[in-house]
């Protein structure tokens, strides 16, 4: 290689490195610490984005968001937060369920807040130590393809007893709300009972796919009769005009599984003032109503003006009224995850 060409290449590489190192500094050097917020958000970006932009417009605080990229790609925001323990860059964690947040609390990563911040949220949905609070919930449901089978809860219950479940789908329970579902079952049945139930499903050939969205696709496209998923995925199929309907998953006690979003501030986070303002905003009636009226139809947990709720959510609230407390599930979460990791990876 001629030396002139080598010099040009070296110069180009130096410019790239220089830009990579100094441009971010130039862009952010004048930003006061109170006008910036770093948010890790596990809620779907298509729904969370408008809420975040609303907060920005209202407060003038710039929110830098890191979304979860779906089970296949994401290392999991919870795991990432644990790995960043030594130098947290995240201020607020908006989780799309509660069990991962409880894990962070156990790891000592969450800040304790003034109880007044969580005042609007009913006691069953918030941490007694004031480190996190739940809001805007989803339900675990059976999504049924109405072209392939009769659409009633009894038919689903009967189909689950059949010898073959090769037309029934569930997500791999290592992640997300299916893991929470398993943790609830672990609490209800005990780990031994859960293992028997899981083995029975696998023995009868239930289809395991990666993620609730894949379950929804299978049922919506008619590859499966029904599957276990969440209300937001079910509404995605319903809104797309697919021949589907849903019923809540009910435990033997008749209770439903309601999975709230949760929010928490990280201990030693870089922007605590902005973080507090965001948490207050997220737990407001305004946001719960906005999420209820979004495509995901999240169920408000705090008091709201019922007249502003869509019909779908009014129906969901009746199901959510029967929901089980997640305290027991939180206690069994680690035990269930450990067993599932061993079951799926041999570790």
């Amino acid at each position: 290689m001629p030396s002139s060409a080598a010099n040009k290449i070296t110069l180009a590489m130096a410019i790239v490195l220089g830009v990579a190192l100094f441009l971010p500094w130039l862009l952010h050097r004048n930003a006061p610490p109170d006008t910036l917020l770093v948010l890790y958000c596990a809620h779907d970006s298509v729904f969370a984005d408008s809420i975040i932009r609303q907060f920005e417009a209202k407060t003038g605080i710039t929110v830098q968001v890191r979304y979860d990229e779906e089970t296949n790609k994401s290392l999991g925001l919870t795991n990432l937060l644990i790995s960043e323990r030594a130098q947290p860059r995240c201020d607020v964690f908006w989780n799309n369920q509660t069990l991962g947040t409880i894990r962070l609390k156990r790891e000592g990563l969450l800040a304790t807040l003034d109880p007044a911040v969580f005042a609007r949220i009913p006691t069953p949905f918030k941490d007694p130590d004031h480190q996190w609070a739940g809001f805007a919930a989803r339900l675990r449901v059976y999504l049924v393809n109405t072209d392939r089978m009769p659409a009633s809860a009894d038919d689903v219950a009967a189909a689950l007893q059949a010898n073959s479940l090769s037309n029934v789908a569930i997500a791999v329970p290592l992640f997300g709300t299916t893991l929470s579902h398993y943790a609830v079952l672990g609490d209800q049945m005990g780990l031994a009972g859960l293992k028997v139930w899981h083995a029975s499903l696998r023995h009868r050939g239930m289809r395991e796919v990666r993620g609730n969205a894949a379950v929804k696709d299978l049922v919506a496209e008619g590859a499966c009769d029904f599957g276990f998923t969440d209300t937001d995925d079910a509404f995605a199929a319903i809104d797309a005009g697919k021949p589907v309907t849903m019923f809540p998953v009910r435990l033997e006690t008749g209770q439903t599984i309601c999975l709230p979003n949760s929010v928490a501030m990280l201990h030693n986070c870089p922007h605590p003032k902005a973080a507090l303002r965001f948490i207050e905003f997220l737990l407001s009636e305004e946001v719960e109503l906005a999420l209820a009226n979004s495509g995901s139809r999240q169920i408000p947990l705090g008091p709201v003006d019922h007249a502003q709720l869509p019909t779908d959510v009014v129906e969901l609230r009746k199901w959510a009224a029967d929901c089980i407390s997640l305290e027991g599930a939180a206690e069994h979460h680690d035990e269930v995850l450990k067993w599932l990791t061993s079951e799926y990876t041999g570790q």
């Binding site: 779907d44 970006s45 298509v46 968001v65 979304y67 990229e69 779906e70 790609k73 993620g211 969205a213």
Partner: peptide
């Protein structure tokens, strides 16, 4: 946010 990660988000919703 690179566009590929956003695409993965879109894929998640099955949109």
């Amino acid at each position: 946010e690179p566009v590929v990660t956003r695409l993965y988000n879109e894929m998640h919703y099955g949109r």
